[in-house]
Amino acid sequence: MAESFFGALTNERVSRVTYLTREDARQDITRYIEFWYNRKRLHSAVGYRPLREFHAEYEKLRIAA
């Protein structure tokens, strides 16, 4: 899964942007992960749902158990 994540990060964000500083890169990549990758991007490994939605459902089931 890590290879899939880094492949998506590279293809969808890093290779399309030129960063002037390391801090610019850090901020942009953090925004990508928090606001796109986790909340909106559909993931095949979890039934084509956003990771945030899958995690919320998992937590509900874990607490109920």
Score class of each variant (00 low, 15 high):
2 A>E: 08
3 E>M: 12
5 F>N: 04
5 F>M: 05
6 F>N: 04
6 F>S: 04
7 G>T: 14
8 A>Y: 13
8 A>H: 12
8 A>D: 12
9 L>S: 07
10 T>W: 13
10 T>Y: 14
11 N>H: 10
11 N>D: 11
11 N>E: 13
12 E>S: 04
12 E>G: 00
13 R>L: 12
14 V>Y: 07
16 R>L: 02
16 R>K: 07
17 V>M: 01
17 V>K: 09
18 T>E: 08
18 T>W: 12
20 L>W: 08
20 L>F: 10
23 E>V: 02
24 D>W: 04
31 R>C: 04
32 Y>L: 05
32 Y>V: 06
32 Y>M: 03
32 Y>D: 06
33 I>G: 08
34 E>K: 14
34 E>C: 11
35 F>R: 11
35 F>Q: 15
35 F>A: 11
37 Y>I: 04
37 Y>L: 06
39 R>H: 09
39 R>K: 15
40 K>V: 03
41 R>D: 00
42 L>G: 11
42 L>V: 15
44 S>L: 09
45 A>C: 13
45 A>S: 15
46 V>R: 00
47 G>F: 01
47 G>T: 08
47 G>E: 05
49 R>E: 06
51 L>K: 14
51 L>F: 08
51 L>M: 10
52 R>G: 01
53 E>P: 10
53 E>F: 03
55 H>D: 01
55 H>L: 10
59 E>P: 01
59 E>S: 02
61 L>T: 05
62 R>Y: 10
62 R>E: 10
63 I>E: 07
64 A>L: 08
